[in-house]
Simulated scan of single mutants.
Amino acid sequence: MAYGARLLMHPRNRYQGHYDLTALFRLEPSLKTWSTLTPTGKESLNFGEPEAVKLLNKALLKHWYQVEWMLPDDHLCPPIPGRADYIHHLADCLADDLPTPYGPDISVLDIGCGANCIYPLIGSAEYGWRFTGSDCQPESIRAAQQLLAMNTGLTRAIRLRRQRDSRKIFDGIIQPNEFYHATLCNPPFHTSAQAAAQGTARKNNHLGLATEQLNFAGRYHELWCPGGEIGFISQMIDESVIYKNQVLWFTTLVAKQQSLGTLRKILRQKSVPVVKEIEMGQGNKKSRLLVWSFHTKRERKALMKPA
């Protein structure tokens, strides 16, 4: 684990370079099965095994947020610290326009919430926000709904909607009289199933695993789409023009540094006046948030109304 990278993590992130494995093993005893030792003799986990990562997430959500969590096989299992970083940076962005970035009056739309529903779970626990989560796969919506039903109060804080047209992002989800303080998204970033498999092979090689071992989980729509992340985010930018008066901030993760140049150009073509790029890092992995608004600070304050 690259402890030097901890300085890139948001200061409010509950994970700052190490896990309390003793506490996590108490909460999720089966996690102990995947315990291993680092070359320096420190206890760690076998992060190359999907089941270990899934159990770690289950323990972390219970430990940090008192949330009961489950995830069906073959669905994307996201790293909790990285997803929490996104939420904290989004809160900083909202704090520029709001007296406080806390409370149920703040409404956020998660595009592609998946069966894991991670962003709504963390955002509602950390900041008390209300969420709408969308996904194009009915099985993901059903799994997320079951997850919410396991936790008292979450069905009031988080609602789910199915996107019935996989070619659309906001269209069909944002209703005419709705207002969102922000949207967030972790878009599929591979261009094809082959590219996703190659990415997995590189990851396995880094972890010292056999290249044919698929150590990630995820349905195709979670991992790749035509045009990759540039294609997906370009569509998001196009649709954001339509909903610019119903959303304060549009945001998305951008996995590849080289994608930013193309996306900046598209935003300039749409005459978007406010664009921000926020770099994030967890361990050896770096990512960035792309944030845009069609309104100046004064206009955003005038636009705001109860969610």
Score class of each variant (00 low, 15 high):
86 Y>M: 11
63 H>Y: 15
225 C>I: 10
95 A>Q: 14
246 Q>M: 02
141 I>P: 05
249 W>E: 09
288 R>G: 00
125 A>D: 12
184 L>F: 01
164 R>D: 14
77 C>R: 01
233 I>K: 09
34 W>L: 08
55 L>H: 11
136 C>Q: 03
129 W>Y: 12
87 I>S: 02
164 R>H: 12
295 H>I: 07
135 D>R: 03
113 C>R: 00
61 L>R: 03
69 W>N: 02
88 H>W: 13
2 A>Y: 03
208 G>A: 13
131 F>L: 07
256 K>C: 01
120 P>L: 06
236 M>I: 08
184 L>N: 08
96 D>Q: 15
5 A>N: 05
116 N>I: 06
289 L>V: 05
136 C>H: 01
50 P>I: 05
94 L>M: 09
2 A>N: 15
29 P>V: 04
256 K>I: 02
12 R>S: 15
142 R>S: 12
288 R>A: 04
304 M>N: 12
4 G>W: 08
298 R>H: 11
192 S>A: 00
224 W>S: 00
259 S>D: 07
22 T>Q: 13
179 F>H: 12
155 T>R: 05
282 Q>K: 06
191 T>C: 07
72 P>V: 07
259 S>V: 09
77 C>N: 14
279 E>W: 04
155 T>K: 08
273 P>Q: 07
145 Q>F: 05
279 E>C: 11
273 P>V: 00
233 I>V: 15
132 T>M: 00
133 G>V: 01
10 H>E: 11
292 W>R: 08
142 R>C: 04
14 R>A: 00
265 K>F: 08
282 Q>N: 12
37 L>H: 10
187 P>R: 09
81 P>I: 05
118 I>S: 12
258 Q>K: 01
114 G>Q: 10
155 T>W: 02
119 Y>E: 04
172 G>A: 08
5 A>L: 01
222 E>V: 06
153 G>F: 10
77 C>G: 00
230 I>D: 02
21 L>S: 11
232 F>W: 11
6 R>A: 14
177 N>E: 15
124 S>I: 04
157 A>Q: 15
237 I>Q: 10
259 S>R: 07
234 S>I: 02
143 A>L: 05
110 D>V: 07
258 Q>H: 08
74 D>V: 01
292 W>E: 01
126 E>Q: 13
124 S>T: 15
17 G>L: 08
226 P>A: 10
202 R>D: 12
111 I>Y: 04
179 F>I: 07
98 L>D: 11
223 L>W: 06
150 M>I: 10
166 S>A: 14
297 K>F: 03
222 E>G: 01
75 H>D: 03
292 W>T: 05
71 L>A: 04
234 S>Q: 13
14 R>W: 15
18 H>C: 13
79 P>E: 02
283 G>I: 00
218 G>L: 00
106 I>Y: 05
